[in-house]
Design a binder for these strands. Structure first.
Lengths: 253, 253
DNA sequence: ATAAAACCTTGATCCAAGTCATAAGAACAA
DNA sequence: TTGTTCTTATGACTTGGATCAAGGTTTTAT
């Protein structure tokens, strides 16, 4: 974990926090009136931290809440009919998990902490009620869901069309962008997931992930020390992924 | 196109139609009061049919509306940095296209008709307003988006983990389920997309799709005549995909 | 501190699916 | 109708990444 990324003092009481939270501009980036922020605040429950490996919710459990990651990282996955885990996403601070549960009131995936992780629980029925009263909040929820749909479609492109190098490069650049958005270094960060989990997510064998990373390092695209990654040649990495330098979003994930 | 699936008389006036539409239970399956259905009706514009190959909206265009397919089929795709088309979805009657445009008010994909296709245009800002007044409508929109997220995640599993046989079988069973839901035959239908488009969508070469389909036919899993497909051995196909016969949804798409 | 378990790397081998090539239908336009 | 283009099928060949195997390193638990 980057040193800058301190375990935020997890205040025991449900005091108004969204206003102070450094993530508020990302998690539900709304220009809400103070009064409305307080109303939002009141429906949010800040939970005790999850330890590494702890499960936030299980596939099949009744859906009640979506969760915003405050610190740490989660993975979501489901168990296939043949019993293997299939990772469907990684979630960093400010990102919302559980949206796919709305459809039939059941989580279709499980969510597990990759490291010590704190989340805000947002009971969805309350969010829905509140969103009727605050149009900009409703719009925000639509936006977040819409973005998720768009992102997942980019992920489908990645899985269907890209080779191992492009997959790994896309993955690293995607993480880089997510760190950057939260004010951390875009070029130097720590992977909270194992190579195996990266491979599982990208549709690659562990060995392939390992080899690609080694090769990237040899070619001086990145610098690797265990889980610490530094991107050295960002332009070259972007070229690999097929990003025109000006159009940050397209074709990256 | 199945003979049962007549080109619905496309009434030129914006008269109330949702009530009569055979798809209403699927497209936004709500138990709305009559009065509310009328309000929904009034914001919906029924457009002239699109001919095969016509584009409904272009990647990059400003987002204004989502569209419900009434008859025919659409594909959505984006153009990658290397200039090739990447298909991200096929849309059958009752299905909603364009939800990924909400996020930044721009369609991140294009939508094109695979055959003569009619759609209902739903201006999103109106839908949003109306949804503030009709909570069950708002909930329905959340549900539709949530389902899309879940479905796309299943698609990611398919692309990342499945082999060619499993991909094609999943694709055919998925179509089968969608036809069935609308009251058509689950075992006998017509593909409105080419083998090339199927391959593009599934991350396979045309030749592979062709070979798999030929092999399925040889093994008497399906019966093929050009674009007409009959599923002969449904249980075997389901086994191939890894569906427990009782849990229709999981692991299928 | 030490053992056990999980994770990462690298090499050797293999195979599923991609690519290339060809040819025969289908769909379409003039 | 006839040519042109698109689509599908099938064979021969190639290859990227999976799998198998083994050894080293890091993390976790006691």
């Amino acid at each position: 974990m980057p040193a800058t990324h301190t375990q935020s003092r997890f205040s025991s009481k449900l005091s108004s926090q969204c206003q102070n939270c450094s993530l508020s501009a990302l998690c539900l980036p709304i220009a809400l009136a103070d009064e409305d922020i307080n109303r939002l605040d009141q429906i949010i429950e800040r939970k005790r931290p999850l330890k590494k490996g702890e499960v936030l919710f299980h596939q099949g459990q009744p859906f009640n809440s979506v969760f915003a990651v405050r610190t740490g990282t989660l993975k979501t996955f489901n168990i296939t009919s043949s019993g293997e885990e299939q990772i469907t996403g990684f979630y960093c601070p400010s990102e919302l998990v559980g949206l796919s549960g709305i459809d039939d009131n059941t989580y279709p995936i499980s969510a597990k902490a990759l490291e010590t992780t704190t989340v805000c629980e947002i009971p969805f029925s309350h969010l829905e009620n509140l969103s009727s009263q605050i149009p900009s909040l409703k719009h925000q929820v639509f936006k977040v869901m819409s973005r998720k749909i768009g992102d997942d479609q980019q992920m489908m492109v990645l899985l269907g069309k890209k080779n191992a190098d492009e997959k790994v490069a896309s993955f690293l650049l995607n993480l880089s962008n997510r760190f950057k958005k939260r004010g951390y270094s875009a070029t130097s960060f720590r992977l909270s997931m194992s190579r195996g989990e990266v491979g599982n997510y990208l549709g690659l064998a562990v060995e392939t992930v390992s080899r690609v990373i080694t090769r990237f390092q040899k070619n001086e695209l990145i610098q690797v020390d265990g889980k610490e990654i530094s991107i050295i040649d960002l332009p070259e990495m972007q070229k690999l992924v097929g990003v025109a330098p000006d159009c940050g979003k397209i074709a990256q994930f």
